[in-house]
């Protein structure tokens, strides 16, 4: 596993995402509720681009007719067939053990720490005073 600097923290607004190429993998990084999550940018079903997914709430119901939302923005709803996934671990709602999106560890670190290395960021200028999103692949 190598650590890749993929974005400055300020570059991805809350509720937004950024698609990055890491070692030939299309990875999408989401920024939700103050945290960052990195997932393979492909739905495990038919390959839809998850950067276009709706960021929705976890939807549950104690009984028919009642809709309860929690963890607003932390679930992905695939832009094609509507499958839901948990951004934190890529697990699908309907079969969390068997059907999931590959997810990657993410960290946010200050530029001054990063200058000590090791990290991979051939094309990415790192400034001491900024924070950066690091994805481990």
């Amino acid at each position: 596993m190598a650590r890749h600097i993929v974005a400055s923290a300020s570059e991805i607004p809350p509720g937004g995402n950024k698609v990055v190429d890491v070692d030939g993998r299309d990875i999408v990084v989401f920024h939700v509720n103050g945290e960052f999550f990195a997932l393979l940018n492909r739905c495990p079903h038919e390959g839809a681009p998850l950067e276009k997914a709706a960021c929705v709430a976890r939807l549950t119901s104690p009984e028919p007719g009642i809709y309860q939302r929690s963890r607003v923005g932390e679930m992905l709803r695939c832009p094609w067939h509507g499958w839901e996934f948990d951004m934190r671990n890529g697990q699908s709602w309907f079969d969390p053990k068997r059907v999931k999106i590959r997810s990657y560890p993410v960290a946010v670190e200050r530029g001054e720490e990063l200058q000590k290395g090791p990290y991979v960021a051939e094309t990415f200028p790192v400034h001491v005073e900024d924070s950066y999103v690091i994805v481990e692949v």
Binding site: R25, L40, R42, D95, R98, V99, K100, I101, R102
Partner: peptide, 9 residues
Amino acid sequence: MSEVIDRPL
């Protein structure tokens, strides 16, 4: 769910 895509193309 016989095949799940979680790899590069």
